[in-house]
Design a protein around this nucleic acid. Structure first.
Lengths: 352, 352
DNA sequence: GTGAAAGCGCTAACAT
DNA sequence: ATGTTAGCGCTTTCAC
């Protein structure tokens, strides 16, 4: 391994001069400067960031921990946003995956602390407040992405799920639906809670029927959504539209409805959270709530940077990004009125 | 920051004793052991991995660099595989993204070297052999994922693209198609080259028409595929089936065909590389070549570990995973014979 | 403008 | 079984 000492010898100067030249701090005559530079180049010298960090107490590392099990696409996109901003600010990303598992998350946090991270961006698992204390005690800033952790003051970036749920309900209401089911995520995530709240509020405000049996909770995956929708249909509950928690759950819903012999959107309208290029090609083309996923990552890293370099040190910030409705076909908005047959209320037909 | 010195003081021993106890090396009496342990706990001591690494010359870091721009899902899944194995072997992952850009890749590699990585897993960008030399010169092992780098001896994990292309062509041939188009990826990636080779071989072997004009090359993205298929149709070239390089290009193809008023699979059959749960829901349900993506990551990290801990130091290994054909609807295999109307050769209809 | 020396937090000979 | 000492590669006073 080539070290400053090697470069110093070759350039005929001291190690401190080499350091000064290479890190652009302090004075150095043009002559020594070029001597050092060419010596470094000739030797293929790469400064050891680890050793530098030990001295400067700045590792240049930030941690990014995701619960990727749910939706690789979503978190890969967030990661890219984080990466872009981190990279252009000289930070490196230590990647972790908590598998939505408290123990794994805790282990990772300790590992990251040991690696002297300067900050952490995390989509928190179910509840690990105690683990976050490890960071807080050391003054290492945290930014939560996508999910809020109650009672723990830290910056947060997320989409406006409350408003998103409202948008979806209102859209369905405007199409004449009166009984809407919500295939929701895990009841212990803030995302699912917010959506349920927005959903109920909109249902009441629009004068639709509020029926708790139409709301189901569970893992954000295809299979569970499929099972729940099958049960819903078989229970005989009446509904004419379904809101799915993400694209995967929309697919589960689609599979269940197919199995039950129900067509979308003719028999049941379907809308979903989370957009993705592929949603535009799914059969039927999905009406979705589009969220600025990439921005989620970029903004999170931005907030973290502010904290790391002391540009901001005030109260926790809660950045809430607005989703937007993308109307395609699965909601039935583009069906001609006479083609539609709303199952629960076949008489309430509105061509919008 | 709590250091070994603090722990040593509190426990009334020397720093080396603390080090011995905490890293489980060397002797220590039961009494001192517990004294050290409780002191460490009381102080909330977390060993500084950076400092340890400086001394031991083992950072515990490996780099994972992806060209995520192409297919977030694919690389997120590979990353999970890598993460799983890395984590259970005490390695941390430094994440990078080369954006398929040589310059960015080179910068990242230097950054990673500076961080004293012990190995690197990378899906190489177009061609950065010189950058890989930086690692090779330092004896840092590299594993290439998904793409081969010619003339650079390093372990590689990939799917059998040659055979995959053959599988797809043979399937289409068995359905009676004689003129098959290939919407291929970048001509400078080994993946695309292998597929073209497998494609041509299969075309010739099955006695189909070999026509270079039916093969197009370009970025692995929706828009470019769409543009190319539009051009292909407008050029008047005859073909009855298309093979797309990945799901995104399949979508681009679908869009172009729709625009040209061509139905899939009635007018043109479509099959694609890369499976994904969503492919089963795309309109029409896509026939695809499924690849073991998660294994790609796990195996890559396994190969890298062997190199890092010296378990293997022989010739470069080339692990080639077998893909499998998943027949759904877009290929037309499930259409009744009389429903089909092969565009180029409407007379050649074969119900399989 | 440049060099000598100390030290970041840790571990590993080498003593004892 | 435990402590002393040196040093990993780098930066940073502090002299000169």
């Amino acid at each position: 391994m080539v070290t400053v000492t090697d470069v110093a010898k070759k350039a005929g100067v001291s190690t401190s001069t080499v350091s000064r030249v290479l890190s652009d701090s302090g004075y150095a005559s043009a002559r020594t400067r070029s001597a050092v530079l060419s010596a470094a180049k000739a030797l293929g010298y790469v400064p050891n960031a680890i050793a530098r960090g030990l001295k400067t107490q700045k590792s240049g590392f930030i941690a990014f921990i995701m619960p990727e099990v749910i939706d690789p696409y979503f978190f890969a996109t967030v990661a890219r946003g984080v990466e872009e901003i981190a990279n252009s600010n000289g930070f490196q990303i230590l990647l972790g995956n908590n598998d939505d598992n408290q123990l794994k998350e805790r282990n990772y946090i300790e590992l990251m602390v040991a690696s002297a991270i300067e900050g952490m961006i995390i989509t928190p698992s179910v509840d690990s407040r105690t683990a976050y204390r490890i960071l807080a005690d050391r003054g290492i800033p945290i930014v939560f992405v996508d999910r809020v952790v109650g009672g723990f003051g830290a910056d947060t970036v997320r989409s406006d799920d409350y408003r998103g749920a409202k948008l979806l309900v209102d859209h369905l209401a405007s199409l004449g639906h009166r009984r809407v089911a919500l295939v929701n995520g895990h009841s212990r995530t803030s995302v699912a809670m917010d959506r349920a709240a927005g959903f109920k509020n909109a249902v009441v405000h629009s004068g639709l029927d509020l029926d708790e049996r139409l709301i189901s909770w569970g893992p954000w995956v295809i299979e569970d959504a499929e099972r729940r929708v099958n049960e819903l249909v078989e229970s005989g509950a009446e509904f004419s539209a379904i809101i799915a928690g993400n694209l995967y759950m929309a697919i589960g819903t689609l599979r269940a409805l197919r199995r039950q012999g129900l067509r979308v959107p003719e028999d049941v309208a379907l809308v979903s959270f989370n957009d993705l290029e592929l949603a535009a090609e799914i059969n039927p083309f999905l009406t979705v709530l589009s969220q600025p996923i990439y921005s989620l990552g970029r903004i999170a890293m931005g907030l973290l940077l502010d904290r790391i370099n002391g540009k901001y040190s005030g109260e926790p910030r809660d950045v809430v990004l607005s989703p937007s409705l993308v109307v395609r076909e699965s909601c039935g908005a583009k069906l001609k009125a006479f083609d539609r047959n709303l199952r629960a209320r076949p008489d309430v037909v509105d061509a919008k």
